[in-house]
Design a protein around this nucleic acid. Structure first.
Lengths: 184, 184
DNA sequence: TTCCAATTGTTGAGAACTCAACACATTGCT
DNA sequence: AGCAATGTGTTGAGTTCTCAACAATTGGAA
């Protein structure tokens, strides 16, 4: 893809996030974004239909970035490395995800994250344990909610424990399920 | 001017300065600049003919930026405010000017700065004291060399005294001349 | 020396961005 | 209610930048 597109979108999103933190979604204008980013107003419309669309794309992007940090691990195995990688990334971009998980995110971020994670979990369960007692929606939503709940708690409370601790604790909690679900 | 031009030139110069500090002028390539700046190689040639031209323009630009900080003061009077403004700016951009004044600048920065400052001093002397004993080259070059020498010393020695001190001391040294030369 | 890889400087076509202008909607003030 | 200021969304013409390709040069290792 043309590098101008990547740069411009990155710039617009960064500016959007900054303004979101400063004044909230309500008071954000396309005008304001263009001025702050020092680009033409029309350029914003070249990439996003309006500020709602921009919020959507922004959330989509940051969900993607977050999950890429475990998709990078070669297999679908839920291993400590992938978990740790995610929480390290969250730590680095703490302010952004705190913002997206706050009221300013309108719950959209949470629901997008939930949708993707639960789908992945469903797939993994389906593949790994076709004949076991885990092949049902309850398991999927139990694990997804648990994981996302912990993630949300950790961010909202400004990382009350370090990455090492939360990773280990989470792995411990998931162990009973990984034993049956994730092995090959 | 088209904002793309300003942004691109700014980006190229910043990248150039970074590379200059990292590996020195010798090892800098147009390729390397384009890669680091994440722009097309051809774009660099759109603005500069080669890396020597880039160095020139870079020096010219930073001389301009430096002197703007006293040209902003309304009159040509050599006042404490203008001096302080210059040294504050130097303090903020210390690493850049230390680099340009070092061997990597090849003395080009110093000589450009000297040329412009001495010309201004000549003009001021000419205007302010047409019939005094100061109307000659000796005065111009004495004052210019003194000023730039102090500036160079201050930067090369990593700002051994603070802005307040160097400003006051310099004003004290210049006082005998400002009395006769700069008043209206 | 010879060869290979990297760099240089240029080209043309096409995509992205800028800018100014437009009509229209929204906001806030008196 | 009326007015002014600000924001919205779109358009068309013009500029800048990208990209891929090119021939020519340079620098270092075999």
């Amino acid at each position: 893809m043309d590098r101008r597109i990547q740069k411009t979108r990155q710039l617009i999103m960064n500016t959007f996030i900054d303004l979101l933190a400063e004044k909230g979604f309500e008071k954000i204008t396309i005008n304001g974004i263009a001025e702050r980013a020092d680009i033409n107003r029309g350029t914003v419309y070249l990439h996003y239909v309006d500020k709602f669309d921009l919020l959507d794309k922004c959330i989509e992007r940051y969900v993607e970035l977050l999950l890429n940090h475990c998709a990078n691990s070669t297999d679908t195995t839920l291993n400590a490395g992938a978990l740790q990688s995610i929480f390290e990334y969250l730590e680095e971009n703490f302010t952004i995800y705190k913002l997206l998980l706050s009221n300013e995110g309108f719950g959209f971020f949470r629901s997008r994250l939930y949708a993707i994670v639960s789908q992945t979990v469903t797939e993994v369960i389906g593949i790994k344990s076709e004949n076991s007692a885990f092949s049902n929606g309850v398991t999927t939503h139990f694990l997804t909610s648990g994981f996302i709940g912990v993630l949300e708690w950790w961010i909202n409370n400004s990382m009350p424990c370090n990455v090492q601790e939360i990773t280990e604790q989470l792995m411990f909690l998931l162990e009973p399920y990984t034993k049956h679900l994730v092995s090959r």
